[in-house]
Design a protein around this nucleic acid. Structure first.
Lengths: 133, 133
DNA sequence: CCCATATATTTCCAAACAGTTATATAACCA
DNA sequence: TGGTTATATAACTGTTTGGAAATATATGGG
């Protein structure tokens, strides 16, 4: 099993907003776009058949979820990907890896070993009862 | 980068319902409970300050998302965890690993190598433009 | 058959959501 | 200053969601 110590858990409310933010294809596409670098609201809105205020709303959702941060460049408010909540979500999902990974034992062993090599800076927080398998 | 071939992508609509299902703490707690084995609706409802129909609704959401399947045991409808959508969600998130994993290169190399050892049986499907970073 | 148990369905409500249009703010430029 | 561009906010609308309450269905046991 992947061992996640107490201070590596994520507040359930944050997972709520993270998963909710990811549950929309427009927002996932925005994240995908931002994975290629910063972009302005206009640039982000361009591929979509949607008005600019709608995109601004989506960005606010992403911002509230901590998935996007914004700067200031003249009248532009460039958006940047903030992947930290994605890591938290991934780690929550990793708790279920054994249910679908056939070579879970080996894979987990290696991931676990490598995890310990990374420096981690997670904030401690509580978890609803049994939110971890 | 983690290489995901075309037939390993997941239909965006499925990610929609998967992430939406995961965006609720009650449903995540139900999944956590099912990670310990099958359970009836009554057993699942017991820890919550919520009526049985509410739990049945949550189960229907999880079922529509493919996260839960159900059997029949007399008047009980035991629920079982189906982790396949969790794998799909995890794999989508893996596409962003390089944005938060410091030792991404090494870790990715190993995961990728191990991935190729697992037998995969994914259905081919399209993806919205740019839904992958 | 009647009854109890387990679960599902229906109806209703309030809140949240995703989108629109119209308007406001903010920063630059001439 | 006034105009233009970029973005945000407001007000409105239709749809979805999470929950309660009541009722219906299904299964097994006397």
């Amino acid at each position: 099993m992947i061992k996640l110590s107490a201070n590596e858990t994520v507040a359930p409310a944050r997972l709520d907003v993270t998963f909710a933010a990811l549950a929309d294809p427009t927002r996932r596409a925005i994240l995908a776009r931002l994975a290629g670098g910063e972009a302005s609201v206009m640039e982000l809105a361009e591929p979509f058949a949607m008005t600019q205020p709608a995109i601004s709303k989506h960005l606010k959702v992403l911002e509230r979820a901590g998935l996007v941060s914004r700067g200031r460049d003249a009248q532009r408010r460039p958006c940047r990907l903030e992947a930290r909540p994605l890591r938290d979500a991934t780690e929550w999902l990793e708790g279920y890896r054994r249910f679908w990974s056939e070579s879970f034992e080996r894979l987990d062993g290696l991931i676990d070993e490598l995890k310990s090599m990374e420096e981690r800076d997670m904030t401690a927080s509580d978890e609803e009862p049994g939110d971890r398998p």
